[in-house]
Design a protein around this nucleic acid. Structure first.
Length: 567
RNA sequence: UGACCCAUGGUGUAAUUGGCAACACUACGGUUUUUGGUAUCGUCAUUCUAGGUUCGAGUCCUAGUGGGUCAACCA
């Protein structure tokens, strides 16, 4: 065994951690954190951040805190706190101790601010937001010092205390760090540390009327919690010098910020503001609409938590912008569902088949394997009789050569039952097939076939004398463009897919479907993976399509149609 | 017209740190199959460009090009 064979490739974060471990930095302790703001639901993009933080800690024997970054009471709410906790648990992660809140540190943060003022490194600015923006300059032009920048420490201390006590109106004053108004990094141009907001906070109530900004709360919270590796996305790169500056000046625990590229998935959006817009304007039914990129949406859609985690691991971690193809996500979920889904037969668009040589009034019971991938999955029963439903797609009057399904004078196997042959059919005034008349081969029963008939196709079916009507929700991508929010000249709503949801009000399902559990993964054979929806009740069963099965016939069909047009 | 980050197949990541560009997905073509599913085999790259260092460069250096980020009292 050589080094070559034992070598395992590491991403850049793992390399940093292993280097730190090697140097016994922080005594070999690894402590990460996931810091969501409770102002919306978690989405697929967060999943990557969650996995990176929790899995790296787990891998290197460390811990991970869950800390809510709740420093802006205007947009935050406890409803989101509960939803976020629920989603993280669903993914299978356990955070260290109780959930933490940046708002737990408001007292400490206030002391930090006083410390900074006393060190002559922060000042109270009376300028308006517009004036501050004006004085800040632009990325290509240096800013200018605020006239209030030279206030004495005593005056700053006094003013800041009065800010805290509510002596000033919202926006009248802010506390700023005194750094460098000509820095090429805009975040170092005397960033605002505290602002006045006379707003009730979801946890601290009316105790405070000044609230710290992100830059004065996040890194400090990391430090207070002794976080060793603060893993965040690339857009915070420019904040890092400020993150480090504050830690240095405050002389507190030196957490280290490391940035990675956030994950983008084609045809999905992850802007909380835009997701909220979809809900508010009624394009979707809520945060948990199965078309949403939210974890609650994906869960309702039938995605498995381990699939999402595996997806994030396959995608990897790096520092370049990326858009992951949806096909990869679908491949991962199909792979997992294939292993566990119970197979059932459901006809979505039925036509009736009458088996003329099968005795009228008779019914037999056949067994159906629950999952051919799993020997221990068992079987369930289904009935067969003279009249059955098959899929409209599975019969063609004048089929092309490559069509392996039912057609006049052609044989096909009914999955788990008999071989049948079509003799004739009825159609309505518009030419739609209404009934196909067939004969079956009694010696071809599934598992004991002595007929010797070779068939190329096997189709699914449901006993027309014993079935359950169910509602199906067939979901497709929510947008027609892979990156709907990337167009400067067009609003993302212009790319909404009008066919993102198709409802099948009464599909014909085998009876067994009424017995399946709420979160039992299902495969509707030859159609796709489904999961029972929470809208199901005693009168009506509703199923969401998680993802279709791969469909190579659809491709062949498309090619046939194309070549037909070409002629 | 500033600073910072990034650049390897259609997509996303690798390349044991300077030594035969690999894996997965997609696409295409086979095999198997009582799901046109699953499984399985095969095909698809002169590493953004130009110089340089070196016996040897995807990797190091220089310049360019392209993409991204930063100017909220948001996080």
């Amino acid at each position: 065994m050589t080094d070559k064979e034992t070598y395992e490739s590491k991403n850049f974060i793992e390399e940093i951690i292993e280097e730190d471990l090697k140097n016994n930095k922080h005594g070999g302790r690894i402590h990460t954190r996931f810091p969501p703001e409770p102002n919306g639901y978690l989405h697929i993009g967060h999943t990557k951040a969650i996995c990176i933080n929790f899995e790296n800690a787990e891998k290197y024997g460390g811990r991970t805190n869950l800390r809510f970054d709740d420093t802006n009471p205007v947009t935050e709410d406890t409803e989101y706190v509960e939803a976020i906790k629920n989603d993280i648990k669903w993914l299978g992660f356990e955070w260290e101790g109780d959930a933490l809140f940046a708002s737990d540190y408001f007292d400490k943060l206030y002391e930090f601010a006083i410390d900074l003022i006393k060190k002559g490194l922060a000042y109270v600015d009376d300028s308006s937001a517009e004036e501050i923006a004006e004085m800040k300059g632009t990325p290509t032009q240096p800013g200018v010092n605020s006239p209030y920048r030279t206030r004495s420490i005593e005056e700053n201390l006094d003013l800041f205390q009065h800010m805290k006590e509510g002596a000033f109106e919202d926006g009248a004053k802010v506390l700023r760090a005194k750094i460098d108004m000509s820095s090429p990094n805009m975040h170092m141009r005397d960033p605002v540390l505290y602002r006045i907001k006379k707003v009730t906070h979801h946890r601290t109530g009316d105790k405070w009327c000044i609230y710290p900004m992100y830059d004065f709360a996040h890194g400090q919270s990391d430090s207070i919690e002794n976080i060793t590796h603060s893993l965040c996305s690339l857009e915070f790169r420019h904040h890092r010098p400020l993150y480090d500056w504050l830690i240095e000046k405050l002389e507190i625990f030196p957490s280290r910020q490391i940035e990675f590229a956030r994950m983008n998935v084609a045809y999905m959006i992850t802007s909380k503001r835009k997701l909220l817009k979809l809900i508010e304007d009624g394009y979707v039914t809520g945060w948990d609409d199965p078309r949403m990129s939210t974890l609650s949406g994906l869960r309702r859609r039938g995605y498995l938590p381990q699939s999402l985690r595996r997806f994030c691991n396959i995608v990897g971690v790096a520092k370049r912008d990326n858009v992951i193809e949806m096909e990869l996500l679908e491949s991962v979920i199909r792979e997992d569902l294939n292993e566990v889904a119970t197979r059932v037969m459901v006809v979505q668009d039925p036509i009736k088949v009458v088996i003329e040589n099968y005795p009228d009034g008779e019914q037999e019971t056949l067994t159906s394997v629950n999952n051919p991938q799993d020997e221990n999955s068992g079987t369930h029963n289904m009935t067969f009789s003279r009249e059955i439903f098959i899929e409209r797609d599975d019969f063609m009057v004048d089929p092309p050569k490559k069509y392996f399904r039912l057609a006049p004078d052609k044989h096909v196997r009914l999955k788990g039952a008999y071989i049948i042959k079509a003799n004739r059919y009825d159609s309505d005034a518009e030419g739609n097939i209404t009934t196909v008349y067939c004969e079956y081969e009694p010696s071809s029963k599934s598992g004991e076939d002595t007929s010797g008939i070779k068939v190329k196709g096997t189709i699914h079916w449901v006993d027309a004398n014993n079935y359950e009507d169910v509602e199906l929700k067939l979901y497709d991508r929510l947008f027609t463009d892979p990156t709907p929010t990337s167009h400067e000249d067009k609003d993302f709503l212009e790319f909404l897919n009008p066919e993102s949801l198709k409802v099948v009000p009464s599909a014909k399902a085998e009876k067994y479907l009424s017995e399946v559990g709420d979160s039992e993964p299902l495969q509707f054979m030859r159609k796709g993976y489904f999961i029972k929806d929470k809208d199901s009740n005693d009168e009506r069963l509703v199923f969401n399509r998680t993802v279709t099965l791969r469909d190579s016939w659809a491709k062949i069909k498309q090619q046939l149609e194309k070549s037909k047009q070409g002629q």
